[in-house]
Design a protein around this nucleic acid. Structure first.
Lengths: 223, 223
DNA sequence: AATGGTTTAAAACTAATGTTTAAAACATGC
DNA sequence: GCATGTTTTAAACATTAGTTTTAAACCATT
């Protein structure tokens, strides 16, 4: 069996690096400590030695990759309070898409989090508090800026879910898109096109809702 | 151990009924045949007897519940080709939300499919061909009717993903919403409000994009 | 170089899970 | 009512996976 340069990076971290991929590919139950250890080229006992048990490893993995991802893409990146909400929305959408579609070192993280969405563990609470809630409040501010001050909170919230929903669709729908359109991965250029679209789509929508409200219309469309 | 009325409904179907829930809750790997059999109140050997093996049961479960769901909510329900696209869009969105958020007998199906999105099996191919593609083509027609005939296919496709993304957000984001807003389930009335919002949001967006295109503007917002 | 704490290694252990077996129970047609 | 095919049952089997154990290897400190 091929021996990687084990001295270059510690055993503990090597496990964290590969465990993220394995958990993302096959889920917590599906992942085996033997597979993880084989890929990390360490002894099977290493996981219990460093993390107590498999579950301890799992939470360590999520913590580890969250740190990595947020160092690369800070939540407030490039956002200037003074910028007009239109630009801030564009930056917000762009940064979400980057995090989701970037095929870098942390490319398995969205999949890990998506699994948490479906089958939550204690890790989701942390993720919501430290990652999602701040993002949501940032977006709420932007959307409120577009809708106008006195807008009901429910309306703001709905618009936020509309924006985020459009973005997240590209995480879990990738296998579907591959089967539907033949496109399963996204280049840098693709991501910009998508960001442009979602921004334009959402801006028209939000402005339309704001205008409809001012003129006293109750609903934007049919019924 | 309590004995349900086993004669009322056949062993095979009783397994299909409960297996859907178990697979949805814990995934294919996480689900154990013993747990399924216990809930169905049948012998452990029944699964191998009727479905060959665990995997055979899994594909049978997806096929079974797909049939059930599509009998309850046909893809073309209430859609009239002659209706204006605004109304058709509203009906389309409503029907997707019903399927996703309905807490009826097939309420575990969205979760099952969401798991397929993350970790596809052969069942996803079938699901895409028989459920998603027809829906997508239906939606494409509606969106094209709103955008105008000569609209590039890429634009139509993007708008479709925007609409669907908003809807599907309510499937997998439910645990997040529970933690974020305290709301984890949706009543009939909630679903209508959501459908109203997504319809209004999307109509403003699509009309805005159509208008922007006519007047020669290239992008809807910033940059 | 000896010592003491830390890390790694191979093997064994235990519990669980999917599957098979073989017999019993049941149902059906003649 | 018996014979035949089908279904159900309990037990056993084989494999796998998480964990533990025990000893060896390693490494810094004195």
């Amino acid at each position: 069996m091929r021996k990687l340069d084990n001295t270059a990076v510690g055993t503990r971290q090597r496990i964290l690096e590969v465990a993220g991929e394995v958990f993302a590919e096959t889920g917590f139950k599906g992942a085996t400590v033997r597979e993880i250890c084989k890929r990390a080229d360490v002894n099977v006992a290493a996981i219990n030695y460093y993390f107590g048990d498999k579950e301890g490893l799992y939470v360590a993995v999520l913590k580890y990759w969250k740190t990595v991802a947020f160092e690369k893409y800070p939540a407030d990146q490039g956002v200037d309070e003074g910028d007009p909400p239109e630009k801030r929305l564009r930056v917000f959408i762009q940064s979400i898409l980057w995090r989701i579609l970037d095929a870098g070192r942390a490319s398995m993280l969205p999949k890990l989090v998506a699994r948490e969405f479906i089958e939550p563990t204690s890790a989701l609470d942390i993720w919501v508090d430290e990652a999602i809630r701040p993002m949501f409040e940032l977006l709420s501010g932007i959307v409120e800026g577009l809708l106008g001050k006195g807008t009901p909170e429910a309306t703001v919230r709905m618009c936020c879910t509309s924006v985020v929903g459009q973005c997240l669709y590209f995480v879990y729908a990738r296998p579907v898109m591959k089967r539907l359109f033949g496109q399963g991965s996204f280049e840098k250029r693709d991501i910009e096109i998508i960001a442009d679209h979602i921004t334009a789509f959402s801006l028209h929508a939000i402005r339309g809702l704001a205008a409809g409200k001012k003129t006293g219309k109750k609903k934007g469309g049919t019924r």
